[in-house]
Design a protein around this nucleic acid. Structure first.
Ligand SMILES: [Zn+2]
Ligand SMILES: [Zn+2]
Length: 436
DNA sequence: ACGTGGTTCAATATAGGTTC
DNA sequence: GGAACCTATATTGAACCACG
């Protein structure tokens, strides 16, 4: 520490009243905190102008890049920033290594790439992307389209998935083993639904699906929340998914879920409610059946949505999806194996330009799609040699396209937000996902 | 007790989405 | 199509805490 405190009352960086030495120089607390945060974080700042912005009390937040540069040139020492004052054990917890993946598994590398060494290289930061302008500068952010809130919830759910599938080699078809494993995962989901949702039986022991009239949004969200775990467990049976690193799983899951919600509802409605073409009824995962024309929405408990919003929220489910997809689904009458192909395809159908996936995952997904097509082709040859397989695949693809359009229209993340936020206030489900 | 570094959190800024 | 609004998230900085 320099012993003398003469010019002390002014911050060396922003000229505000200083309060003493910070990281080796006289500065204010604000600049000290700014510097500490910068050193501790993985942020990079890029000046949008000439790298010579004026920094003073009023302008210090105008350009982060020049502010941090001034911190360094004024002599702030990054090595005096402590890693953490917490106990080492806690500090280690926040880093989540993925060490136990086999060699043939895709490893994630979306974050952390080369960012740790930027402390002494401020001048080289102009390399980073210019996606987000902020007043006088540009800074990097996690450009993932899943909100941190949803991501953390899904992360928890997927991480807590402890299901282990044991596949008996002898029962797996050598020609389309992937589809068979997915089939087993799906049936596990169906069995799970039978357990957790109370559904009525007829006297003959046949499950009956009865048309409901009152629709409750909370109940709907709760039900979907309960099913979420089952879907996460199902995916563990999908070959190729299980050994992905958790962040890639979360991204895939989010995308898959959006499509699965729609496509599987249409499929189940066809499978369980019969094949009458003009019937527009939809069966939900708990066995309740609704029809848009006859359902009455219970808006008593909904304080955060107007009736119009509620209508806009349920319309895609109960009006648009059935109208556009039920008829093609019923005409096609897909087998379960064909549906497994469709489910697999929507899981792996990620586009090249999607920045939330790392290149390895995108390539892997492409290979998975090819494999699914190969297996479906083999399935047709062996099991359905008399049908026109090409045409059926085309019609399946049409259904997936319609699903895609619906997903685009309706911003699934709003639904996920609703699902989790309803629960946030729900004491009964508090323990389900650690809400503080 | 002092000085300085960490932590917390309310206030504020930003980006991106929605609506009209 | 775009301005004006809305929301979720990120950043800031002051107050407070910890520790030698
Ligand atoms: Zn300052
Ligand atoms: Zn600048």
């Amino acid at each position: 520490m320099p012993p003398i405190k003469n010019p002390k009352f002014v911050c060396s960086i922003c000229e505000e009243k200083a309060d003493g030495y910070h990281f080796g120089i006289v500065s204010c607390r604000a600049c000290a905190a700014f510097f500490r945060r910068y050193v501790a974080s993985k942020l990079k700042y890029v000046c949008r102008f000439e790298d010579n912005c004026e920094i003073n009390k009023n302008k210090r937040v105008m350009c982060r890049s020049c502010r941090i540069k001034k911190c360094y040139s004024a002599g702030m020492k990054p090595e005096e920033v402590q890693v953490s004052r917490e106990t080492p054990s806690k500090a280690q917890q926040s880093l989540s290594p993925n060490t136990n993946s086999p060699d043939d598994i895709i490893t994630m590398s979306t974050n952390d790439a080369g960012i740790t060494s930027q402390i002494h290289e401020i001048s080289s930061t102009s390399l980073c992307s210019t996606s987000n302008a902020y007043q006088g500068n540009i800074y990097l952010r996690n450009s993932n389209s899943i909100s941190p809130f949803i991501r953390s919830k899904l992360h928890q759910i997927i991480e807590n998935c402890s299901v282990n599938y044991i596949f008996d080699e002898t029962t797996l078809s050598p020609h389309y083993p992937t589809l068979v494993q997915m089939y087993m995962g799906y049936h596990r989901l169906l069995a799970r639904r039978d357990q957790i949702f109370i559904r009525p039986f007829s006297n003959e022991g046949i499950r009956i699906y009865t048309l409901q009239d009152v629709f409750n949004v909370h109940k709907f969200a709760n039900m979907n929340r309960l099913d979420l775990d089952g879907i996460a467990e199902m995916l563990e049976a999908f070959p190729g998914y299980k050994y992905l690193v958790i962040d890639e799983k979360v991204s895939l899951f989010k995308q898959f879920y959006s499509h699965f919600l729609i496509l599987e509802r249409i499929y189940e409605s066809y499978r369980l409610l019969g094949t009458r073409i003009d019937d527009q009824k939809i069966v939900l995962v708990n066995g309740d059946v609704y029809e848009y024309q006859t359902m009455k929405v219970d808006i008593q408990e909904i304080s955060d949505m107007s009736p119009e919003q509620v209508d806009a929220y349920i319309k895609p489910w109960f009006k648009i999806a059935p109208r556009k997809m039920l008829e093609p689904m019923k005409k096609l009458a897909p087998t379960e194996t064909e549906m497994m192909f469709a489910f697999g395809y929507i899981l792996w159908n990620i586009q090249e330009n999607e920045s939330k996936f790392c290149p390895e995952t995108i390539l892997f997904a492409k290979n998975m799609r090819s494999m699914l097509l190969d297996e479906l082709s083999a399935y047709y040859k062996i099991e359905l040699p008399t049908l026109n397989g090409v045409r059926r695949v085309g019609e399946l693809m049409d259904l997936m396209n319609m699903t895609e359009k619906l997903v685009m229209q309706r911003n699934e993340h709003i639904l996920l937000n609703k699902i989790f936020k309803y629960f946030k206030k729900d004491v009964f489900f508090h323990g389900l996902f650690d809400i503080d």
